[in-house]
Each structure stands twice: as structure tokens, then as C-alpha cells.
Amino acid sequence: MTQVTLRQEGKTLTALLSGEIDHHGAARLREEIDGRVAAASPAILVLDFSAVTFMDSAGIGLILGRHKLVSAMGGVVVVQKAPKDIRRTLSVAGIESKE
């Protein structure tokens, strides 16, 4: 099941994503993350993919959409800890994942 756990430390909001991210599951992730971003106005939004077991281009859309939202508020989005299969999908969009 697709889930997100949100943790805030100072101006950094970390979204720990887990499960399978496809078009079906992305909608709920988007709602939960955006609700928290609107309330917290983070300087850094970290999207942590370490527990994601599947991702198609809906995950790329999720990243690009959050980038648009957060950068409009003056913040940045960091993608981190994507497993090998997820990194290969990210590479189609030229997105790199931090360790």
C-alpha cells in the first residue's frame, strides 16, 4: 500500500514514501504532502524513496509537481535514497537521487 510519513525538523520537511507509486496511489500522496507544505512552508522538502518498491512516471509527476509548488514558495526539493529500479525510472526524466 502506498503511504507517506511526514516529519518536520526546523524548516526541513521530510516525506518518507513507501509502497508502489503509480497514478492510482500518487493522488493521495500528493494531497497529504501538499497539505503539510501549505501549512509549514518548508525551505527544503525531502522526498525519501528508500521504502518505495515500484514507481512509474506518476512518481516523476509527483516530484515535478512538488518542485513547482515548493519553488514558488522559495524552497527546494531534494530526492534521496531511491533504490536501483526507481533510479532507472528517474533517469528517464534526468532526475538524480542523493544517497
Binding site: 500518487a26 512509474d56 516523476i60 509527476g61 513547482k68
Partner: peptide, 14 residues
């Protein structure tokens, strides 16, 4: 706006 427009690019790559 939430669709990346990369579905066919992913299918082609994979």
C-alpha cells in the same frame, strides 16, 4: 499538471 508526459518515453526505454 501532475502528469509528466513521460509515459511513452518510459515504455520506449524499458
Amino acid at each position: 499538471p501532475e502528469r509528466a508526459g513521460l509515459g511513452f518515453a518510459v515504455m520506449t526505454s524499458f
